[in-house]
Structures are given as structure tokens and as C-alpha cells.
Write a protein that binds this DNA or RNA. Structure first.
Lengths: 195, 195, 195, 195
DNA sequence: TATGAATGAGTGTTCATTCAT
DNA sequence: GATGAATGAACACTCATTCAT
């Protein structure tokens, strides 16, 4: 048994450490992203986490990997909210509106994250695709439902809409008079077919 | 008149090369901004213009000065288009739509410029204000006309709208399926009061 | 005791190379200071030490930090020599003379260091204060002893004297016929009350 | 006559302009040297004089040439004061003291000039030699008179003394508690043979 | 001859990334 | 594995000096 323990424990122990580090990094990154944006220096994140910089590179080889990991849960929640809202809301368009609202909420509370949905940053393609790959299908489902209900025209692409919403949610902190949620709502309202 | 021209020219003459350089810089900057964004290294712009770096600093002490100079004419044209469209269009809302369309056109053809309308860049306040100070009043005039015509509700701030449009026009190049003009049109459509 | 040593060493071990680098930097800086003055380019010092520039900034964030580190030991030795000389010399004035001599010795062998005691360089206040804060009290003690012994008048300020000696020790290399020690001795001689 | 005028006048006219410029430059340099030291940017001096930078280079190819020209008159006055003081003062040593006092006065009122008497600045050899070549003989004369009068020992070199005084006069502005005149007087006092 | 625009080497400083310990 | 020291490319900015006008 001692033998078994010896063989089994160390890897587990290591993994325990590693996991602790990974979690520390995620927490630290979340904090730093809020304070300094997702482009914050690697050092800053490492320092906040209390680990070496090498540890970041081990767990998250690219910055995109780290950002994805930081927001994975919230993205997932957003994904899951789609069908739920569709089931609960009075109309598909109302569900869409609420879901977009939720998405904007998510973006604006994560300083700088929305900026990563922009395409002109080199190296962020991975990141953009990760988010869009997960959220676009949900959005598409909501859109389709609204189309089927005759509430909106069928000529809007889910991906394009997500990009637009992402853009609208950019750079909030500097301007307290800019309400991304409101702007997004206007855009969604613009989707309606005149009846 | 020829005489007058002759007398007026000399003071300007001295800068024949200087003006050539200034224009070369503006052209170079416009090109580089498209290729690498408005944050492109000073050296790159200087190289593209075929001048030394010091020359940039002489003509445009800060980056904002250069960006403003690059887009000054186009901004002015945009400003002047407002009243013209208002006079020509069938309804105020149509004028607004067309003007926004023109604004987006301007932004999306100038890679990276739209990004400067974001607030989270330090040191770009001057720039943002320059653009907004000129365009917001025009937008406000168009909005008010539409409000007066009962076409849209009166609860939209011109500055907020400009910011939204600016955001929608960000990061186009990476995604050929994203049509900023369309998205902007949707947002403007969303302004309409249901009749 | 071997055990204690073993336990004490490890925390220091990790920095085996760092310490080597730090020492290399101190040596290199001392050399370069002699050749090019304390204002020598950071790159030159890094090259002389065979390290990257970042390494200098890691170890010595400001230039003053580096200069202080380079001369710390010698300043300390000078500080400690004061009381020793006072105890050993025949008279307080003799002790003062010898101590000043030692100080000049220190300064003239460190090219450019004396120049840092000048006040007209911006950003060197820290440095000047570091040196003066340590040496002025010693000088004051020696002065007071001489005053008490009736050898010199009591109207000389230690800080002022240090500044004067520092100035006298400046810019030696260019003129082999200039003997700072001699000049300093004359000044100290001038302190004597005529008897 | 018209011919003569044509040939003779233009060069004279030109010289009048050139002289005006030269004087303007000297005035400007004197002003700027006080404000920013003798190492002030060429541009600053040109701007103060209201001329182009090329004009400075035409009149004063090197910085040393400009500095020399700026202080030529005062140096000359200092030179002439030597014999005068020797004739007027009670003793040669008193004359020496007064002359040194005058020299220090000259230096400390010219910000940064004293620093140029230091040898560790590259390219200032010309400057140093210009000043010393003129002042050392005067100092030597005063020293010799004092030696002849038995007031001071004969082992002090005039050039060395001038260098020492120059050094003592360096970097005054930053320290209101440093009195260069006093320090110089102490040094001169130290020259006296004990009687 | 005067001007001042242009040049570009020089310098400080930051920070992503690697790798010896 | 984890650490964080080291690297060095990248960049902004200054200013002495040259030279076209």
C-alpha cells in the first residue's frame, strides 16, 4: 500500500498543486482583467496570482487560452440561458431581447473583453472563434424562433449580430453616458418587421 | 489677380519641400493606418513617407495631431453632409439613416479610426473629442428633426448614438461577413416609434 | 554550524547567477564610470557586463541605484574611518586633514563620482543626499573636535565643506598637474585659526 | 563712384547684418546660459536670438566658440583687474584674495560656466584652455608677488589654483547654503605661510 | 548669407518569452 | 513542475548637425 501510495499520490499531489495554481491564475487574471484590461502585462497577472511567469505559460500557452479559461463558465451560462429564456419568455423576440441583454451584461462587466471580439488584433482569432462558436448557435436558435414567429425578418445572420453586439459593448468605462444595453436593445428592436 | 497670386505665394514658397513632406506624411499615415492601425510605429509611417522620424515630430507633435490631420477633410465633409441630407431627403429619419450610413462608410474605410472613438485608450481623449465635437452637433440636429417629425422618440442622446455607431464600425477587415452599414441601419431603425 | 550554514545557504543559492550578474554589473559600471562618467549609456554598461539591458533595470531600477551600489562599500569605509582617525591622530585638525585626504582619494579614484555631488543635475538629488547624509555627520564630528580643541573657528558648516571638497575632486583625469588632494589640504589648512 | 559703391557697400552692409546677428546671438546665449546652462540646446539659443540655427553654426562653429565669445569681455576685465588690485591692495596676499573673489564672482553669476572648466567633458578642451590661457598668467603674477613678499610658499602652481577655484565655483544654484566665495577664501587663506 | 526643415544616431524604457536553476 | 532572472526586440522621443531653398 505504501508502494501504491507512493506511485499514486505524487501525481495526484502534483495535480493538486497544479490545479491550485490554475485556479489562482484564473482568479488573478479575472481581477487583473477588470483592473487593466485583457491586455495587461503577464507579469501583473503572475504577481497577482503569486506564481512565476513560467507557470502562466505552462497552463495557458497563449493569452487567448487564459482569457477563454477565465470566461468559460460565464460563456457557458450564457449559452445555457438561451433555451431557458426561449421557453420562459412570452415571445421569441422578447427572449432574444433578454438574451442579448444578458450577453451585453456579461461583456460590459468584463473590462476589455468585448474589445477582444474585435478582429483587428493579431493573435486573437482563436479567442474570437471560441466565443463565437459557442454563442452563435444559441443566438441563431433564438433568431430562428423569432423568424418563425413572424416577428423579425429572416435576413439577419446570427454571427453578424453577435459581432455587432460585441462591438456595442466595447469601451464602456470611459463614458458613463454610454449605455451599451440600451444601444443593443435598439438594435434588436430594429430587427422587428413592421406589422 | 496674377499679381496678387504672385505676392501671396512667396511666404508659402519657402515650404515647398515642407509641404511636400507634410502631404507625403499624410498619405503615408493614411496608408499605414489602413495596414497597421492608428497605433502603428512612428518609424513605419516615416519610412512609408520616405522621411526621417524627426520630420513627423516637427509636423505632428503628437500622434493625435497626425490622425486628426489625416481625417480632417473627411470629417468636415461628413459634417457638411448633415444639413444637405436633411434638406434633400424625404423625411428626417431618412436623412438620419443616410447620414449615419455615410458616417459608417467613412469609418469602415479608415481602418482603425473607429477604434479611436473608443474611450479606453489613454491619450486619445484629444482625438475622440475632436471628432465628436464636430460630428455630435450634426447628429443632434438630424435627431431633433426626426423627433420633431414624430418619427423617433426623443430619448436618444446624439453623443451616445455616435459612440454606438463608432463601435459598430470597429474591426471590420477581419470579417467579410460583417456589414457595419447594415448593423448601423438596424440600430437607426430601432429608433423609430412604432406607429 | 555546518548544518546552520547549509540551512542558511539555500535561500541564497537560487540567486547564484543573479548575484554573479549583479556583481558583473557593479564591476562593469565601475569600469564604464571611469571611462565615460556616471552618465554613460545604459547599453554601454550592459554590454560591458555582458548582460541584457533588462538585467540592469531589474537590479538597479534607476541610475542612482546603480551608482550608489557601486560606491556603497567605499562610502561606508570612509564613514568608519572618521572616528578611527580621530582616535589615532595627534590632533583633531590632523585627523580632519587625514580624513579629508581619504575622502578625496576615494573621489578622485572614482571618475565622475565627484561630479554627482554637484547639484545642477536633475534627478541626482537622491544620489547626492545618499552620500552627504552619510558623510556629513562624520565630517561634522571631526570639525567639532577641532573646534573644541581650539584649532579651527566654529563657523564652518560640515555640509558646505563636503561640497567644497567634492567640487575640488572633480574632473581630474584631464589635467595631470592638478592635485585635488593638495588643494583640499590647502582648504583645510585655511580653516585654522591663526595662533 | 557708383561702381565703387557697388563694390564696397554690399560687403559692408552684409557685415552690418552679420554683426547684428552676432550680437543678438551673444545676448541670447548669455540669457539662455543663465536660464539653462551652457549645455542648453542650440535651438533654444537660436530661438531666443530670433535667428536660424544655421546662423549660429556660421558664427560659432562649436559650442566652445560661442561660450568664449559670450564671456570674452568679462574674462578680459578679470585679466585687467589683476595688476590693478596688486597696485591698490595693502599686501600681495590681499590682492590675490580680492582677485580670486572677483573671479569666483564672475563664475558663480554665470550658471554652468564653471562646470566647463572641468576636464571630463569631451570637446571642451578648447574652452578650458581659452580661459586658463588668459587668466593663469594674471594669477601667476599675483601669486609671485605674494611669494616675493614672503606671504605664501612658492610651491603653488597658478594653473592648479585656477582649476581649484573653478571647481569650487561649480553647481551653486542647487544649494543656497554653499558659498563658493567663502570656500575660495579659505583656500587662499590656506596658502599663507605660518609666521 | 540666412533660414529652418530634414536627418538619423543615440538613448531610455517596457515587456513577451525563454530557460537555467 | 515551478520559479523568476535574463534576454533583446521594439518603440518613443530628443537634438546636434547638415543642406536645400
Amino acid at each position: 500500500m505504501a508502494d501504491t501510495a507512493k506511485r499514486a499520490d505524487p501525481p495526484v499531489r502534483k495535480r493538486a498543486d497544479a490545479r491550485r495554481n490554475e485556479q489562482a491564475l484564473l482568479d488573478a487574471a479575472a481581477t487583473v482583467f477588470v483592473a487593466s484590461g485583457v491586455q495587461a502585462p503577464v507579469r501583473e497577472i503572475a504577481a497577482q496570482a503569486g506564481v512565476g511567469m513560467g507557470t502562466i505559460y505552462r497552463h495557458f500557452p497563449t493569452r487567448a487560452d487564459l482569457i477563454i479559461a477565465v470566461y468559460r463558465h460565464q460563456v457557458q451560462a450564457c449559452v445555457e440561458a438561451g433555451p431557458a429564456l426561449l421557453a420562459a419568455a412570452e415571445t421569441p423576440h422578447a427572449a432574444l431581447t433578454q438574451w442579448i441583454d444578458r450577453f451585453v451584461d456579461f461583456l460590459v462587466t468584463k473590462h476589455g473583453l468585448a474589445a477582444t471580439l474585435r478582429a483587428d488584433q493579431q493573435g486573437f482569432d482563436t479567442l474570437i472563434h471560441y466565443f463565437l462558436d459557442r454563442l452563435v448557435p444559441v443566438c441563431a436558435q433564438l433568431l430562428q424562433a423569432a423568424v418563425d414567429a413572424g416577428q423579425i425578418s429572416d435576413d439577419v445572420d446570427a454571427r453578424e449580430l453577435m459581432r455587432a453586439i460585441g462591438n456595442l459593448s466595447v469601451g464602456i468605462e470611459g463614458d458613463p453616458d454610454y449605455d451599451a444595453r440600451r444601444m443593443a436593445a435598439l438594435l434588436v428592436a430594429g430587427l422587428r418587421v413592421s406589422t
